[in-house]
Design a protein around this nucleic acid. Sequence first.
DNA 1: ATTAATTTTTAAGTTAACTTAAAAAGTTTT
DNA 2: AAAACTTTTTAAGTTAACTTAAAAATTAAT
Lengths: 219, 219
Amino acid sequence: MSIAIENFVKAIYNNNSHDARDTKPGNIAKKLGISSAAATDMAKKLATKDLLHYEKYQELQLTDKGRKMAINIVRKHRLWEAFLFKMFDMSLHDIHKEAELLEHQTSDLLAEKISEYLGHPKFDPHGDPIPNANGEITTTDTSIPLSNAEENKTYIISRLTSDDKEFFEFCAKQKLKYGHEIKVSKQFKNNKMTELSVENNTILLNEDFTTLIYVNEIN
Amino acid sequence: MSIAIENFVKAIYNNNSHDARDTKPGNIAKKLGISSAAATDMAKKLATKDLLHYEKYQELQLTDKGRKMAINIVRKHRLWEAFLFKMFDMSLHDIHKEAELLEHQTSDLLAEKISEYLGHPKFDPHGDPIPNANGEITTTDTSIPLSNAEENKTYIISRLTSDDKEFFEFCAKQKLKYGHEIKVSKQFKNNKMTELSVENNTILLNEDFTTLIYVNEIN
DNA sequence: ATTAATTTTTAAGTTAACTTAAAAAGTTTT
DNA sequence: AAAACTTTTTAAGTTAACTTAAAAATTAAT
């Protein structure tokens, strides 16, 4: 399967999981940076390959085969992220970019070797779950977006769900990293701002950040 | 640059260095598994990009720009080989196959990180030299093919210049590995066979092997 | 419930990287 | 130095993955 096909299937899969629910060609096209005409064409083609269900003007839905394929790519992506993160001193954004390329050129064998080396990790450095070789995902994920966190409670950062460079630069600078502890001091509901403290620094985040950062409460 | 272009340039470069000298489209086409018509087309295209000199019916010659590009890819290939060899228990052939894919999706940044991690190695697990980030290759290579080795002398294996699976399987089984010591006991010139001993085993190799295995004399 | 706005699809066209088959040029043999 | 053979090139055509622009359908607004 070509890189174009792999990216298309992956885009639908990712869209279905965390983002909104709109998996029509236009929206997928936007994520991939192609025209929606191209996305419609591709959708039709992938339907003949039994990777997705296509009906005019309807949402695209992956078949079991398509989902399996997407999960396999996501697995490789997240394994590369975890591996590069462990081995090299690189920014999360750079790691993401490299993984985005490497994921398409990685045999199942190599993926398994990487997983083994890392001790079959369940999460990548963004906190996203790593599917196992059978495509099973173990996420008893109870995390909530920071925007829904409660005042005066303490949390651990469990996921950073972005691929924007500035986002990661900001997070890195403010020590907003996977596994780090934070305390929410105030929720400004009207302004959709959240005040919190990280390592004795108090910062104020707006909705653009608090919906992308997921946390788990500490008891 | 596309993967097709990178592989084309690399094929010319590799052909020029160790193999024969025939860098006409037909020969390059054979190595890449494409038709010679396709190779001619590609050659013309790359000439307009100033990657090589093309003249009808003549040998293809890389320009400085083309050579630089080829060396950059070769560098990434060999770094991946060295890295995968160090990290994972995989056959040399599998490692080669993975590197063949990964080389095209590796940023200069990542290549440098890998090189750094390995302590800027000068040779890969086949004994092929790894160009540095500036494209410089330090090979004071005095090695000779096993076919030219002298009787009753002891050598160290310095290069295994193949990409054939069976070749590597055979070499692995016979302990013919980079850095290993061997003693040539007899050269059967007429039959182009070489008798040698490795770790107390005596084996007889024909020309298909002895021209691909390079060695350095021990004094 | 029409009209207006948006989105999806269709249609036609482009580019890269191939293919096969025939023509042209080069190489080898006698 | 022809004739025979081989290789390269040209020509025409294919496929995947796009594009733009217009037509068709859906969705939103008054």
